[in-house]
C-alpha cells in the first residue's frame, strides 16, 4: 500500500523533475557548460506565476507560456555577451561555472529587490482541484498536473530535436561543434537559441514548482540547480530526452526513502549522483560515454 503509493508518487513527481531539469541538460549538451543560474530562473518563473495569479487573477500556468519571448532574449543576450570572451580563456568549462554562479547571484539579488525576500506560495485551490484518486489512493492534483504537463513538453522537445531542421542542427552541434560548423551550420545562432530555450524551460517549470515545492523564495535557486543537475546526471548528461527517465528514478528513490527512512531522504539525491557518476558516468539512460 505504502510501497505502491511511494512508487506511483515517484513516477508522477519524477516526470515533473525531468521537466524541471531538461533545460539544464539541453544547455549542457549544446554549450558544454553547467548553467548554475538554472535554479534562479526557475525561481523567477515561480514569481511570475505568483504575480499572474495574485495581481492579475489569470491562470497561473499561463506564466509558462508568457516566459517564452523574454527567455529567448535573455538567452541571446547572455550568449553573445559572454561566450566570445569565455571561449578565449584557458579553461572555459570551469570558468563558466563561476561565471554562471555570479549570474545566479545577480538574478537572486534582482529578484529580492523587485519581489522582496518574502516567501510566495499559492494555495492548491488556485489550480482548481486539490487531489486525484488513482488505484484507490489519493494524490495531490499538482503531482498529476506536473506529470501531465511533462509528457507534452518532452513530446515537443522530441519533435524539435528529431523532426525539425533546427533540431537537426542542434543535435549536430551537440555531437561536435566543429563538424557542425564545417557543414555550414551557424553554431553561434543554434547555441544562442538553445540557451534561450533552456532558460524558457526553466522558467516554465517554475510555474509548477511554486506548487510542488510548496512555495518559492529568492534563496532557493542553487538548491534547485543541484537537484536538477542530479536528475540529468542520472538520466545522462547531454541527452535531453533521458532527463525524464532520470527524474523518474530520482522521484521513486526519494519517495521510497521518505517512506522507509525519512531522516535520510535528503542524502538520496547526492548519494545517487555520486553513485551514478562513479559507476556509470554516462548516466543510466545516456548513450554518450564521457572519457574521464
Amino acid at each position: 500500500m505504502l510501497l505502491e503509493f511511494a512508487l506511483i508518487g515517484g513516477v508522477l513527481t519524477g516526470m515533473y523533475y525531468g521537466f524541471l531539469a531538461v533545460g539544464l541538460n539541453l544547455v549542457f549538451g549544446v554549450l558544454r557548460f553547467v548553467n548554475l543560474a538554472h535554479g534562479s530562473v526557475v525561481v523567477l518563473g515561480s514569481y511570475l506565476t505568483w504575480e499572474l495569479s495574485n495581481t492579475w487573477h489569470l491562470n497561473p500556468l499561463l506564466a509558462g507560456l508568457i516566459a517564452f519571448p523574454p527567455s529567448l532574449v535573455l538567452g541571446a543576450v547572455i550568449f553573445y555577451a559572454v561566450t566570445p570572451r569565455l571561449s578565449r580563456s584557458a579553461d572555459p568549462e570551469m570558468l563558466s561555472l563561476i561565471l554562471f554562479f555570479g549570474i545566479a547571484q545577480a538574478i537572486e539579488a534582482i529578484t529580492t529587490i523587485v519581489f522582496t525576500s518574502n516567501r510566495r506560495a499559492l494555495p492548491g485551490s488556485t489550480l482548481g482541484a486539490s487531489s486525484v484518486s488513482i488505484l484507490g489512493q489519493r494524490y495531490p492534483f499538482y503531482w498529476v498536473l506536473g506529470a501531465a504537463i511533462a509528457v507534452p513538453v518532452f513530446g515537443a522537445i522530441y519533435i524539435y530535436l528529431y523532426r525539425t531542421r533546427l533540431g537537426l542542427a542542434t543535435r549536430a552541434v551537440m555531437s561536435s561543434p566543429d563538424d557542425a560548423a564545417s557543414v555550414g551550420i551557424d553554431v553561434k545562432r543554434v547555441s544562442a537559441i538553445c540557451l534561450g530555450v533552456g532558460l524558457f524551460l526553466a522558467a516554465s517549470a517554475g510555474s509548477l514548482s511554486i506548487f510542488i515545492r510548496g512555495g518559492t523564495d529568492p534563496a532557493q535557486g542553487i538548491a534547485v540547480t543541484t537537484f536538477a543537475f542530479t536528475v540529468i546526471v542520472i538520466g545522462g548528461l547531454g541527452n535531453p530526452i533521458s532527463s525524464i527517465a532520470g527524474g523518474v528514478v530520482l522521484g521513486c528513490a526519494y519517495n521510497l526513502a521518505q517512506a522507509y527512512a525519512p531522516s535520510w531522504s535528503g542524502v538520496i539525491p547526492y548519494g545517487l549522483l555520486l553513485a551514478v557518476m562513479l559507476i556509470r558516468p554516462s548516466g543510466l539512460f545516456g548513450s554518450q560515454v564521457r572519457v574521464a
Partner: peptide, 18 residues
C-alpha cells in the same frame, strides 16, 4: 551587497580570466 558581488564575479571572469 549581493547584486554588486554577483556582477563583480561576472566581470572578473570575463575580463581577468587568468
Amino acid at each position: 551587497f549581493q547584486l554588486i558581488y554577483g556582477l563583480l564575479i561576472v566581470v572578473i571572469v570575463l575580463f581577468v580570466p587568468r
